[in-house]
C-alpha cells in the first residue's frame, strides 16, 4: 500500500534557523496521524512543504507517491488543508468561496455548487452560505475552514490546530466529524496543542521539537514510556519504607524509579506500574502490612510530551525514526 505521506531527511533552513532538520516519517494510508510539538517545533513548516507554501531545502517529500514539487499537481490534488490561520477570500460569500476552491481543483461549475451546499450542511453552517467570512462567529469560521478542506473530497485531510479557540461542544462536533471521515477511508494528519485530542483520536503520533523528530508511536506506547504512580495506603503507618525484595529487585532492574513513604501512604513510581503493582501488593501482604486503599495513577500523554520536549529534557540527539517506531534503514 502506498503511504499517504512519505518524507525522508526533510530539511528546511531559514538562514541560520533549521525549521526542519532531517525529518523522516511515513504516514500510512487511512491512518489518523497526530503531529505534536511545542510552538516553533516545525509542524506548520512540515505541512506547508506538503502543500507547496514552503520550499524544502533538502530531502524528499511525497504524497501518495507523488513528489510535492516535481509532481505537485497530483500531490495537491489529493490534499485538503484546513490551516490554523484564516486565509480565506473575504470578497465573496462563503458558498462562492467554496465553489471557487472546487474550481481550482478542476471540479466543474455544474457540480461545485452542489458540493458546496453538501459540505456546508455537513459542518452545520448551510444557513450562513450567503454570508461573507468576516461576519461568521469564531466557531463558524473554524467549521468553514473544515468545509473548505472537504470541498475537494480529499484523500488526505490535513488539519492544523482545527479546534484552537473553540468551545467544548464544537470541539466534540469536529472530533465526531473527522473521526467519521477517517472511518470512511480518509487519511488524517492532525496537529494540535490539545494532547487529549491526540490521545483520543490518533492511531499514531509523532513528536517534533526544534525541527527534529523525537519519536513516532501510538499514544498507548508513549504513555507506557512514562512512569506510573502507585499509592498504597496502609492500616498502620510504618516508621520507614518497608524492606521488600520486590522493591529492591525493581529498582535494580530499573522498573522502579522511586519509593517514598508519606505517613501511611507508600508511593512507588514505576514504569508500566500495572505490572509492578501485583507483586508489590503480595509482598506487602506477606510482610504483614494491611492495605486499606490502593491507586495507580497512569502517566498522561501530556506528561510524556512535556518531558520529551522540555528544554534539555528531550532526546535531542535522537536519530530520526520511522513511523513504526523503529530505526530507518
Amino acid at each position: 500500500m502506498t503511504a499517504a505521506i512519505d518524507v525522508e531527511n526533510l530539511q528546511k533552513r531559514y538562514e541560520d534557523v533549521r525549521a526542519l532538520d532531517g525529518v523522516s516519517l511515513t504516514v500510512p494510508e487511512g491512518s489518523f496521524f497526530g503531529l505534536l510539538g511545542p510552538n516553533g517545533a516545525g509542524k506548520t513548516t512540515f505541512i506547508n512543504i506538503l502543500v507547496g507554501l514552503v520550499r524544502r531545502t533538502g530531502g524528499r517529500a511525497e504524497v501518495f507517491g507523488h513528489d510535492v514539487e516535481d509532481d505537485y499537481r497530483r500531490a495537491r490534488d489529493a490534499i485538503g488543508l484546513a490551516p490554523q490561520e484564516f486565509n480565506v477570500d473575504r470578497f465573496f460569500p462563503i458558498r462562492e468561496v467554496l465553489q471557487h476552491k472546487a474550481g481550482y481543483h478542476g471540479i466543474p461549475e455544474s457540480t461545485a455548487g452542489e458540493r458546496a451546499d453538501e459540505v456546508l450542511r455537513r459542518v452545520g453552517i448551510y444557513d450562513k452560505r450567503d454570508t461573507r467570512f468576516d461576519w461568521l462567529s469564531g466557531g463558524m469560521k473554524r467549521r468553514f475552514m473544515l468545509a473548505r478542506a472537504l470541498i475537494t473530497d480529499p484523500d488526505l485531510l490535513i488539519l492544523d490546530e482545527p479546534t484552537a479557540g473553540v468551545d467544548v461542544q464544537l470541539r466534540h462536533d469536529l472530533w465526531d466529524l473527522i473521526t467519521e471521515l477517517n472511518e470512511g477511508g480518509t487519511t488524517i494528519l492532525l496537529t494540535t496543542h490539545y494532547i487529549e485530542e491526540a490521545e483520543r483520536l490518533c492511531d499514531e503520533v509523532a513528536i517534533l521539537d526544534s525541527g527534529r523528530l523525537l519519536t513516532v508511536a501510538t499514544p498507548e506506547e508513549l504513555m507506557d514510556r512514562g512512569p506510573d504512580r502507585i499509592t498504597v495506603t496502609l492500616r498502620d503507618a510504618p516508621a520507614t519504607v518497608p524492606d521488600l525484595p520486590t522493591l529492591a529487585a525493581g529498582e535494580r532492574e530499573g522498573r522502579i524509579e522511586a519509593v517514598e513513604l508519606d505517613g501511611d501512604k507508600l508511593v512507588v513510581t514505576a514504569t508500566r506500574g500495572g505490572l509492578v503493582a501485583p507483586d508489590l501488593v503480595r509482598a506487602l501482604d506477606r510482610a504483614g502490612h494491611e492495605i486499606v486503599d490502593f491507586d495507580i495513577s497512569r502517566t498522561s500523554l501530556e506528561e510524556v510530551f512535556v518531558e520529551m520536549t522540555r528544554e534539555g529534557g528531550g532526546d535531542r540527539t535522537a536519530e530520526p525514526v520511522a513511523a513504526d517506531g523503529g530505526e530507518l534503514p
Binding site: 489529493a78 470578497f91 465573496f92 474550481g103 478542476g106
Partner: peptide, 24 residues
C-alpha cells in the same frame, strides 16, 4: 481522486477575478 485536467481552474480563477471588480 482524479487528476485535474482542462481549463476549469483557469476559468474559475478568471471568473473570480472579474467578478471581484464587477461587483465593486
Amino acid at each position: 481522486m482524479s487528476l485535474v485536467s482542462g481549463l476549469t481552474g483557469f476559468k474559475t480563477l478568471t471568473k473570480r477575478e472579474i467578478l471581484r471588480f464587477l461587483r465593486r
